[in-house]
């Protein structure tokens, strides 16, 4: 078979992946659905050669989990919009008009740009190489002749700054912990 052991690896790791998804906030049946999608992708043979199946499968499960959660958020917002329209509560608009959307994007870009500009230069370089160029920590470390943990400290600093500013932008829209939300009413 053409999946280079990924399929067998998946079967062996299935219980661990299921536990992982539940710990990420998936319900039992949602975790099952997500694993089924992973299995389907593996079975379609669309996956390329993989050096480390375990990490690859966890990443794949995580991607599917995020896609699921995004869908759940959108559905919940739609329900809230409907309820809002019938109760007089202000609707929580997911899709703003495009002009407004691009204005928000421009504002967010300006904020992100200023966060990046304020990082120390070395931190900025390492973050770019890691996040944009996709280089690994060990390859950045050996190239700059510093330790891997030093690279990690730079990256932590960059992510601290990005997470902090993101928290401020997002205070009004916290992410739900669970995939299925909006069932227990709409607290004022």
């Amino acid at each position: 078979m053409t999946d280079g052991g990924l399929y067998e690896a998946f079967l062996g790791m299935r219980p661990a992946l299921h536990r992982y998804l539940q710990r990420r906030g998936a319900r039992d049946d949602e975790a099952e659905d997500i694993l089924q999608e992973v299995l389907l992708t593996l079975s379609s043979g669309k996956t390329g050669p993989v050096s480390e199946p375990g990490g690859y499968l966890y990443r794949m499960a995580t991607n599917h989990f995020l896609i699921h959660r995004r869908g759940a958020v959108r559905r919940a917002r739609r329900e809230e919009d409907w309820v809002g329209a019938h109760t007089g509560d202000p609707p929580d608009l997911d899709e703003a008009p495009s002009a407004e959307t691009s204005l928000i994007a421009r504002q967010q870009l300006a904020i992100l740009q200023s966060v990046i500009d304020r990082l120390p230069e070395r931190t900025r370089t390492i973050f770019r190489r890691f996040r944009i160029e996709g280089e690994t920590r060990p390859s950045i470390a050996s190239d700059l002749e510093i330790s891997i943990s030093a690279v990690e400290k730079h990256l932590a600093r960059a992510y601290e700054a990005i997470t902090a500013v993101r928290l401020r932008l997002d205070e009004d829209k916290p992410l739900p912990r669970h995939l299925t939300i909006g069932k227990d009413g709409h607290g004022a």
């Binding site: 994007a105 967010q108 870009l109 992100l112 740009q113 900025r124 370089t125 996040r131 993101r166 992410l175």
Partner: peptide
């Protein structure tokens, strides 16, 4: 979520180095 949110913005960020 913060890291995912910056994904569409990153191509437009200028890295001054």
């Amino acid at each position: 979520a913060a890291d995912l949110a910056i994904e569409p913005l990153l191509p437009h960020v200028v890295f001054r180095e």
